[in-house]
Design a protein around this nucleic acid. Structure first.
Length: 430
DNA sequence: TCTGGGGTCCTAGGACCC
DNA sequence: TCTGGGGTCCTAGGACCC
């Protein structure tokens, strides 16, 4: 058996913990650059604000409905998440943290599951101030569904039996009620069925979770592939998805952003991509990995029909895997110079670190890492940078932009043999 | 004017090998 | 001369998740 616990309207709820005056009013949390809505309170949902909706489309609701919009504070949400997860872990022997606001719990050997779920739920409510819902079922997909039911039963009285509010254990409801619930659930609400697949399924008269559950498995397999086949079996109660208690190390690390205003020149593009690269490199080292290739991309806004369109990317293979910010910066800059074309209003750019491999001691000692950038141990410097940034906040210290670094390298090339320059030259202390 | 960011998995098709 | 078929690896693209 699996439980799925998640925090209701998580980001909005986190904000309300620290600003109780926001209770009862339509509250939305906005993405980077206040671009679009990424979390909504119940009141915000009730006045029709959609997930992912551009903020400018709902901005007027501030005056008409008293809506409040906040810029996201991810550091806060991460902290609240950690606390919620550690309490949630008390529900069973195993926990898979699935996202910032939800986790699966393995319930093997747990007695009195429903009562325990209620207890954890109120513990989180009391201790952290976040309202959660719990779905319990024999498969992860059904646990997700049960979680939906627990939510609807709570916020839409009358939709489901009231005793399912907050905690819904499918093992404790009748098969008739379960069938009824599946018939009431649009197929697109099933975990693993997105917009595209839902549309195609509907064209074959499969519009509800119940109809998907009863679809012929070989047909699903041939038409939609193995992923949806697993979903069908999970809906039937056959567990196909395991708990992943030890998340495998990431296979790629990305840092990408939309720009607050369009970027047209090369220098600010390099500046931005350099910044992304440093953040990505930090994540890479935190995972104790190195990367073998650096991918950069930039594109214009897909929403502006009148602008000339541009989308380019480049992958730079490194001579040898590295986690050294200065090496990655050089590669990223090379990539940017490769793809850049003047005359476009770029809306977004990013960096992805690919071909990750563990930076084990053995590898480090086997490879004689040349340090052409400066004559000292870069890994110690990187570690120091990471520690300073962890202590004083992101970006407290960073390597100067790749543009500056490029100039610096040129100076190095010209330098006389006896001349030494230290990296302090290109460290920016903010 | 203004439209998120960071991931995963699967599949199809081409290149290459024996 | 006859010109097969199966396996593997890689990549791009599409789908999904929160």
């Amino acid at each position: 058996m699996f439980a799925l616990l998640d925090g209701n309207n998580f980001y909005a709820s986190c904000e309300r913990v620290f600003r109780p005056s926001l209770k009862g009013i339509p509250l939305v949390v906005l993405s980077n650059n206040d671009g679009c809505v990424i979390a909504r309170s119940e009141e915000a949902k009730a006045i029709g604000i959609k997930m992912g909706q551009p903020y400018f489309q709902v901005q007027h609701l501030h005056t008409t409905h008293g809506m409040v919009a906040l810029s996201a504070n991810f550091a806060l949400y991460g902290d609240m998440s950690d606390r919620m997860m550690s309490l949630a872990a008390g529900m069973g022997p195993e926990q898979e943290i699935y996202s910032i606001d939800e986790c699966f719990i393995g319930l093997q050997g747990v007695a009195d599951v429903t009562r325990r779920a209620h207890a954890i739920r109120s513990r989180i409510q009391r201790g952290i101030g976040i309202t959660t819902c719990v779905g319990i079922a024999p498969t992860k997909t059904l646990a997700k569904l049960a979680n939906h039911i627990a939510k609807d039963a709570e916020r839409k009285p009358g939709s489901y039996p009231p005793h399912l509010a907050g905690v819904c254990n499918l093992a404790e409801i009748s098969t008739e009620l379960l069938a009824h619930m599946l018939r009431c659930t649009p197929v697109g609400d099933v975990w693993g069925v997105g917009r595209r697949i839902a549309k195609r399924l509907c064209e074959h008269n499969i519009a509800t979770a119940w109809e998907l559950r009863n679809a012929p498995v070989p047909w699903v397999r041939s038409q939609f592939g193995v992923v949806l086949e697993r979903t069908v079996r999970e809906l039937q109660g056959i567990a196909c998805l395991e708990l992943e208690t030890q998340p495998p190390p990431k296979q790629q690390i990305a840092c990408t952003r939309s720009f607050g205003r369009p970027v047209t020149e090369l220098a600010p593009l390099i500046e931005a991509v350099s910044h992304f690269t440093q953040r990505a490199a930090e994540k890479l080292r935190a995972q104790e990995h190195r990367c073998g290739a650096v991918h950069v991309f930039a594109h214009t806004s897909p929403f502006r029909q009148d602008d000339a369109r541009f989308a380019q990317s480049a992958t730079i293979q490194l001579v040898q895997p590295s986690a050294d910010t200065t090496v990655l910066l050089a590669a990223a800059e090379q990539g940017v110079r490769k793809i850049y074309e003047p005359g476009y209003r770029l809306a977004k750019a990013g960096v992805m670190l690919l071909d990750l491999s563990p930076a084990t001691l053995e590898q480090a000692s086997l490879i004689e890492v040349p340090q052409p950038e400066c004559g000292r141990d870069m890994s110690a410097l990187m570690e120091a940078m990471d520690r300073i940034n962890a202590r004083w906040g992101k970006g407290a210290v960073c390597v100067g932009s790749a543009l500056q670094a490029g100039e610096w390298r040129m100076r190095q090339d010209r330098k006389s043999p006896g001349y030494t320059t230290t990296l302090e030259n290109i460290l920016c202390i903010n």
